[in-house]
Amino acid sequence: MKMFVKPDSIYLHRDVVDFRKSIDGLVAIVESELKRDVYTGALFLFCNKAKDKLKLVYWDKTGFALWYKRLEKHKFKWPSQLDELEFELTEQQLIGLLSGYDVLGHQALRYQSDLEEIE
């Protein structure tokens, strides 16, 4: 997927939202729940309860734009079980999410040596 804008930041709102909300309702969530400035040009992603629809809203310096995607047979891999209310995504993670990949469901690998540190 080719990006339609070059965002400085991409934020995913973890909780599902009522998809009757349009731009004004989603902007209110960004400002009240996420405590973010919507006029920065950042992208903000939202998902419905069934996780088969996604809305993306952003400010493009002339007004707000709303992007909507509906999956026909599958569900988005939305991180609803994690503790954080929002997640900052990279452009690559956004592309993966839109393509159906689980971009936040895996914990980072951490390795620990069995040997004690030598000072």
Rank of each mutant, 00 (worst) to 15 (best):
G96E: 14
A28N: 14
E88T: 10
V57M: 03
K6P: 04
L54Y: 07
K51T: 13
S9P: 01
L89D: 07
Q107T: 08
S22E: 15
Y58C: 12
Q107H: 07
I95G: 01
P79V: 05
F4T: 06
Q81N: 12
L82P: 01
L104F: 06
N48Q: 04
F64C: 06
D52L: 02
K73W: 05
E116T: 14
Q92W: 04
I10Y: 00
E86L: 08
G63T: 09
A28R: 13
R70D: 02
E72L: 12
W78C: 10
D83N: 10
R110P: 00
R14F: 07
W59S: 00
L97Y: 04
E33N: 08
S113W: 11
I29A: 01
A65W: 04
E119W: 12
L71I: 10
I29P: 08
K21F: 06
L34A: 15
S113P: 07
D18H: 10
Y58S: 09
A28I: 02
Y68P: 01
V103C: 03
A28T: 11
L109Y: 02
Y111T: 14
K75P: 00
H74T: 15
L43C: 04
D114V: 08
K35I: 03
T90K: 01
D37R: 08
G41N: 08
R110M: 02
Y68R: 03
K53E: 05
T40Y: 00
A108C: 02
G105Q: 09
L94Q: 01
L89G: 10
C47M: 08
G63Q: 06
